[in-house]
């Protein structure tokens, strides 16, 4: 009985096409006619480009044909079919190119697979967005938008280990608002918040691309400035301090006490040492009348 079975490509639930060197269709089975929604005589000798979308044509030129010419096959590739009514149908194609330049296409409709993929892609997009939001929540201070204490510590530790290898220096500024409790007590917490936001903006405005600016806690900010000399770091501290002294915020006179420490070339430090030293400098500023920048040397 088996000898009586005559394989007929029209019986298969898959499209079969032969495309010549000029990318014109020279053979196709019934599945393709149904896909295109057109009878045989119109399909033959028509460029394949007519039956796939513009995007798919770009994909064909930039990926599928170069791949065929390199490997002779291109498998499991999704493009979009365009039928004679202008409807778009996602299809998977497997293509083989022979040495005479004829390409043999197998075409399968993949509407459901495409739906699944779209769902997966949009879920992925949503997850990416959520993870970014969570990252932002976990790393920034909600009031000022600056790095929070934890992220500051993470990033500074990274910077310290990079600096260990590169033999350059960086500075750390501890900045504290003088008599901030008094501002809160006299003008209320909302005004206190305004002051903190104003300062965060000022520090951000003066930061270089690689500087770290953080709200370390309460009314204390820490700035980390990579690749900077002692003098430049001191000047920046003074620039910030004078800017605040000369420009009242919401008609309130604010001043800053600053502690500065600069690392030494090729000398290893850790975050605790740095914070301890800048804190010492900050304490000196507070103890000697506030509204000033003091420098402490690393031990």
């Amino acid at each position: 009985m088996s000898s009586e079975v005559k394989p007929d490509l029209n019986h298969f639930l898959s499209g079969h096409l032969v495309v010549n060197k000029d990318r014109k269709i020279i053979f196709c089975n019934d599945y393709i006619h149904e896909l295109i929604n057109q009878s045989d005589n119109k399909v033959i000798d028509t460029p394949i480009s007519k039956y796939i979308t513009k995007a798919s044509n770009i994909f064909l030129d930039s990926y599928i044909y170069p791949l065929l010419l390199t490997d002779s096959t291109a498998q499991e590739i999704q493009i979009t079919w365009l039928n004679s009514n202008g409807e778009k149908i996602p299809v998977i194609v497997n293509i083989k190119l022979d040495k005479d330049g004829l390409s043999y296409w197998s075409v399968y409709i993949c509407i459901n697979r495409d739906k699944l993929q779209n769902e997966w892609l949009s879920a992925n997009k949503k997850l990416e967005k959520q993870s970014q939001e969570l990252f932002n929540l976990a790393t920034t201070d909600p009031l000022t938008g600056l790095l929070n204490r934890r992220e500051f510590q993470e990033q500074t530790k990274k910077l310290i280990s990079q600096t260990d290898r590169s033999a350059s220096t960086f500075a750390l500024l501890s900045i504290d608002v003088d008599f901030f409790k008094h501002v809160n007590d006299t003008h209320g917490h909302q005004v206190g918040d305004k002051v903190l936001i104003h300062l965060a903006k000022l520090f951000n405005k003066n930061r270089r691309a690689n500087d770290l600016v953080s709200r370390f806690g309460g009314e204390e900010f820490i700035l980390v400035l990579p690749d900077i000399t002692n003098e430049d770091a001191y000047q920046l501290a003074e620039k910030l301090r004078l800017n605040v002294e000369r420009n009242p915020i919401d008609n309130i006179q604010i001043t800053l006490s600053i502690g500065l420490v600069v690392t030494k070339k090729a000398k290893k430090v850790n975050l605790e040492q740095l914070l301890k030293t800048s804190d010492k400098a900050l304490y000196m500023s507070k103890a000697t009348g506030r509204n000033k920048t003091s420098v402490a040397e690393l031990e």
């Binding site: 979308t53 995007a55 994909f59 999704q78 979009t80 892609l121």
Partner: peptide, 13 residues
């Protein structure tokens, strides 16, 4: 639409 589809093809392939 064309360009969105092109980006989509990049994702799907």
């Amino acid at each position: 639409n064309d360009l969105e589809e092109l980006i989509g093809l990049m994702d799907k392939n």
